[in-house]
């Protein structure tokens, strides 16, 4: 477009200002703050310079590395389950069926609901005293006493150290599996039909076609879905906050929750900023990897 040299910048200015104020300055502040000791209620100017002390503390802080490990465990299970179930269902339901619009609408719902509400719903379902899950487990167990040995009794889903992680994984799988399912379904339905037909004529059966033709063509889509989920695992906070608040005994305290609690419960903002920085670095690295696979602002391909 033939235009004045300043014009592009004028168009960019409002968005740039908001992004600078809302994203860059806070991030910059977390870098600054991570060199200081500052707690709630203290005047901003009274913050104490610590140099790299927060960094050294992070390096040696067993509690923080434990939260990183917990994030990995949580991430491993949710990503594995969501990818397997999502991929399996997409392959099974690939063929367009009458009424798929109706089902699609249902599957989008968990993704549109506020995380806080997802937390409240599962908090109720898994509640030890009044929860629906325990009610049915107990009733089935009483009806068929043999099953009681297999776990059909009441459980403290959210406060039992062995079950709390399982509970937050289940709620996440419920909310996010449809996302994987729909991404992969869209990918499958967008595969060029001539290749599929050719391999069919060559005598490939369903299994061969899936493993040797479709999945290889889907590699980048599957990788992108995987990366998006890994990124979201590091961002996850609200549902866990409502369900277990990191408990019992810090068993479900993922990194983002650890950061949140360091800031707003321990009121140790300098160190929380250090953790925020760690989280940001992880997310920025993951975003760059994601961008290598698919750069949405690339010129039309």
């Amino acid at each position: 477009m033939r235009s004045n040299k300043i014009v592009p910048y004028i168009f960019l200015l409002p968005a740039a200002l908001i992004i600078i104020v809302g994203l860059f300055i806070p991030l910059w502040n977390s870098i600054i703050l991570s060199f200081y000791d500052w707690s709630f209620g203290q005047a901003w100017s009274d913050k104490e310079f610590l140099g790299f002390e927060n960094f050294v503390r992070l390096w040696n802080d067993e509690e923080s590395w434990r939260s990183v490990r917990i994030t990995f465990v949580f991430g491993f299970w949710v990503v594995l389950l969501e990818m397997l179930i999502g991929l399996g269902l997409a392959l099974l339901l690939e063929k367009p069926l009458v009424g798929s619009t109706f089902f699609r609408t249902i599957f989008v719902m968990p993704l549109m609901i506020a995380p806080i509400v997802v937390g409240l719903i599962w908090r109720y379902l898994l509640d030890a005293r009044n929860g629906v899950v325990n009610y049915y487990l107990e009733n089935i167990g009483e009806a068929v006493p043999f099953l009681q040995n297999l776990g059909f009794v009441r459980h403290s889903w959210l406060s039992d150290p062995n079950l709390a992680m399982f509970s937050i994984v289940i709620s996440d799988v419920w909310q996010w599996t449809p996302f994987i399912f729909m991404i992969i379904l869209a990918g499958l339905q967008g595969l060029p039909s001539d290749v599929i037909e050719a391999s069919f004529i060559d005598g490939a059966n369903w299994w061969q076609m899936t493993m040797q033709v479709k999945l290889p063509m889907m590699t980048s889509i599957i990788l992108i879905a995987l990366l998006m989920r890994i990124i979201d695992v590091f961002r996850a906070l609200e549902v866990i906050y409502i369900l277990t608040n990191g408990g019992p005994g810090g068993n479900t305290r993922v990194l983002s929750l650890h950061m949140f609690q360091t800031a707003f419960q321990a009121r140790d903002f300098g160190y929380a900023a250090m953790l925020a920085l760690l989280l940001s670095v992880i997310l920025i690295i993951l975003s760059v990897i994601l961008m290598l696979f698919n750069n949405p602002l690339k010129e039309d391909s």
Binding site: F24, N29, S30, L33, W44, L237, M259, F269, S287
Partner: peptide
């Protein structure tokens, strides 16, 4: 400009909350 917006697009609200509350 295009790439820097993409790189920070995954920053979660909680990270902002920690540093913003100060000022």
């Amino acid at each position: 400009i295009a790439q820097s917006t993409l790189i920070i697009r995954m920053i979660p609200p909680a990270v902002l909350a920690v540093t913003v509350v100060g000022f």
